[in-house]
Computed example of a mutant assay.
Amino acid sequence: MSKTKKSEFRPNDYVVYPAHGVGKIVSIEEQEVAGLTLEMFVLSFEKDKMTLRVPTDKATVIGMRSLASPDMIDKAMTTLKGRARVKRAMWSRRAQEYEQKINSGDLILIAEVVRDLHRTDDQREQSYSERQLYEAALERLTREVAAVSGGDEAQAAKQVDEVLMSRAA
């Protein structure tokens, strides 16, 4: 295995892993798997008390990416301001689509889910599964906004909430 291609990811970088959201690269270590020595990123997801090992040569293929740029955060906020687009499909099909968007790791798609599932107090009640998907998307969005701004999650949640409320007004 050649070490010529240097990865764009370094220890202590915050990255987005599609299925789990924002994590931190704690180290890069070598591990023997089935007789092969693989170089692995060791990702820590503090909130979920989870550690993940990702082969360095597979990281980009599986969609691991750097945190969004401030510009991308602005685009996500603009997406939140848009009108909710709810398809007339059956809930099971829509839920599957929302799930795919959340697990894509794409900030804009995650913002779409938050926008489409957000309810103001005077709107109809959310079903349990709607609320679950909404909260999962909101958490992913908020964590990345917090990580990019270097602020805390409470501040990021307030920022996202203000955008959603301004839309309702």
Results as ranks from 00 to 15, higher is better:
Glu125Asp: 13
Lys87Phe: 07
Ser104Ala: 12
Ile102Val: 15
Tyr14Phe: 14
Arg10Val: 01
Gln96Lys: 15
Gln96Gly: 05
Glu125Val: 11
Leu67His: 12
Asp48Tyr: 13
Gln96Pro: 01
Met40Val: 02
Phe41Lys: 01
Gly23Arg: 01
Leu107His: 09
Ala68Ile: 00
Asp121Val: 15
Val163Gln: 15
Arg143Lys: 12
Gly82Val: 13
Met40Glu: 07
Leu80Glu: 01
Gly150Cys: 09
Glu30Leu: 02
Ala59Glu: 01
Leu38Trp: 03
Thr56Cys: 05
Met165Arg: 15
Asn12Ile: 08
Gln100Ser: 07
Lys75Trp: 12
Gln155Met: 12
Glu153Trp: 03
Gly105Ser: 08
Arg85Thr: 08
Glu29Asn: 02
Glu32Tyr: 01
Arg88Gln: 14
Glu32Arg: 08
Ala169Cys: 07
Leu36Tyr: 06
Lys101Tyr: 12
Ala34Met: 07
Lys81Val: 06
Glu153Tyr: 02
Lys101Thr: 00
Glu139Gly: 02
Asp13Asn: 14
Leu38Ser: 01
Leu43Gln: 06
Tyr128Val: 11
Lys3Leu: 11
Lys47Thr: 14
Arg10Ala: 00
Arg83Ser: 05
Gly82Asn: 08
Asp13Ser: 13
Asp122Cys: 10
Tyr98Val: 09
Thr60Met: 04
Arg53Leu: 11
Trp91Tyr: 12
Ser127Leu: 12
Val42Lys: 13
Leu36Asn: 13
Arg143Gln: 13
Glu46Thr: 09
Trp91Met: 10
Lys158Val: 05
Met165Asp: 14
Arg88Leu: 12
Tyr98Met: 14
Leu36Gln: 14
Leu141Gly: 04
Gly35Ile: 01
Ser2Arg: 12
Thr142Asn: 04
Val160Asn: 02
Lys81Cys: 06
Met40Leu: 13
Asp161Trp: 15
Leu38His: 04
Ala168Gly: 11
Asp13Met: 03
Leu107Thr: 05
Phe9Asp: 03
Pro18Met: 05
Ala19Gln: 04
Met40Pro: 05
Val22Leu: 13
Met64Pro: 10
Val16Leu: 11
Asp121Met: 07
Glu130Tyr: 10
Leu117Asn: 04
Tyr128Leu: 04
Val26Trp: 01
Thr79Gly: 06
Ala147Phe: 02
Trp91His: 09
Gly63Thr: 13
Gln31Thr: 09
Leu141Cys: 09
Ile73Gly: 00
Gly105Lys: 02
Pro55Met: 06
Lys5Ser: 11
Pro70Gly: 07
Ile73Glu: 00
Trp91Val: 11
Arg140Ala: 05
Ser104Met: 10
